[in-house]
Amino acid sequence: KKVTINGVEIKFNNPEEAVKFALELAKRLNLRIEFHGDQIKIE
């Protein structure tokens, strides 16, 4: 399963991993996060 985070394609074994990764990243950098299907936007 491929997920695009800020235009960067990252391959994950499952979608939950991708979501956890994105949330952790957003929390660490104190950023806002948006989900659009397989696209995750962090700003």
Rank of each mutant, 00 (worst) to 15 (best):
E24A: 13
D38E: 07
F35A: 03
K11C: 15
V19S: 03
I33H: 00
N30E: 03
K2H: 09
A26W: 05
Q39G: 10
I5C: 15
E16T: 09
L23R: 05
E9H: 09
K27I: 08
F35N: 01
I40P: 00
K11W: 15
G7V: 08
I33G: 00
I5Y: 12
F35E: 02
K1E: 05
L23T: 07
K20L: 09
F35C: 14
E16Y: 12
F21Y: 09
L31I: 09
E34P: 01
K41D: 04
V19M: 14
K27C: 15
E43H: 13
E9P: 07
K27Q: 09
V19F: 12
R32S: 05
F35D: 01
F21P: 00
A26E: 01
E17M: 10
A18W: 13
G7K: 05
K41A: 07
I33V: 12
E43L: 15
I40N: 01
A22H: 01
V8L: 10
N6M: 11
I42S: 01
G7I: 13
T4K: 07
V19E: 05
E24R: 10
P15L: 13
L23Y: 08
G7D: 04
K41I: 15
E16A: 11
E43V: 15
L31Q: 00
L23K: 05
I33N: 00
N13M: 11
L23D: 01
I10V: 06
L31M: 11
V19K: 07
E24S: 09
L29T: 02
K27E: 08
G37L: 09
K1N: 11
K41C: 14
I33S: 00
I10Y: 14
G7W: 10
I33Y: 03
I5W: 13
V19T: 06
N6V: 10
I40E: 01
N14S: 14
L25W: 10
L23G: 01
I33A: 02
E34W: 11
F21K: 02
V3L: 08
I42H: 02
K2G: 06
P15E: 10
R32F: 05
K41M: 12
I10E: 01
P15F: 14
N14W: 08
Q39C: 14
K27W: 09
N14R: 08
Q39P: 03
R32Y: 05
G37Y: 08
I40D: 01
I33M: 04
K27S: 10
K11M: 14
E24N: 07
G7H: 04
N14T: 14
A26Q: 03
E24K: 08
I10D: 00
V3A: 02
L25C: 13
R32I: 07
T4Q: 05
L29W: 08
K27Y: 09
N13P: 10
I42Q: 00
N6C: 15
I42V: 07
L25R: 00
K41L: 13
I42K: 01
N6W: 15
V3M: 05
K20E: 06
I40C: 05
V8Y: 13
L29S: 02
F21M: 04
E34V: 12
A18M: 09
E9G: 05
H36S: 11
F35R: 03
K27H: 09
E16D: 10
L23E: 05
L29D: 00
N13C: 15
L23Q: 05
A18F: 13
I5F: 13
T4C: 15
K11R: 12
K41W: 13
Q39N: 13
G7S: 03
A22T: 04
F35Q: 03
G7F: 07
E16N: 08
I40T: 01
E17K: 07
V8I: 12
L25E: 02
E24W: 14
G7N: 05
N6A: 08
I42M: 06
L29V: 03
E24I: 09
A22S: 02
N30K: 10
V3E: 03
I10L: 11
E9T: 14
G37R: 07
E43G: 13
L25S: 00
D38F: 12
N6T: 04
V8T: 06
H36W: 12
A26M: 08
F12K: 00
D38T: 07
I10T: 03
K2F: 13
E17T: 06
G37A: 08
K27T: 10
K11N: 13
L29I: 04
E43P: 03
K1T: 14
K41E: 05
P15A: 12
L25G: 00
T4E: 04
E17V: 06
V8N: 04
E34S: 12
I40H: 02
F35T: 03
K1C: 15
L31P: 00
K1M: 15
N6S: 05
G37Q: 09
K2C: 15
E17P: 04
L31R: 01
I40Q: 01
F21H: 01
L23A: 04
F21G: 00
A22C: 13
E16V: 10
R32E: 02
E16R: 11
I40K: 01
E34A: 07
N30G: 11
E16I: 11
K2Y: 13
D38G: 07
T4F: 15
Q39M: 13
K27A: 12
E24Y: 12
N13R: 13
G7T: 04
K20N: 05
F12L: 04
P15D: 09
E34F: 12
A18R: 03
F21C: 15
A18Y: 07
L31V: 10
G37D: 09
A18S: 04
E43N: 11
K11Y: 15
P15V: 11
I40F: 03
F12I: 04
H36D: 12
R28Y: 11
T4N: 06
V19A: 06
L31A: 12
N6F: 15
I10P: 00
L31N: 00
F12P: 00
E43R: 11
K11G: 07
R28W: 12
K1W: 15
V8R: 10
N13Q: 10
N30Q: 07
N14P: 08
K1D: 06
T4L: 14
G37N: 08
R28V: 07
I10Q: 02
N6K: 05
I33C: 08
K41Y: 14
I42P: 00
D38K: 05
V19H: 06
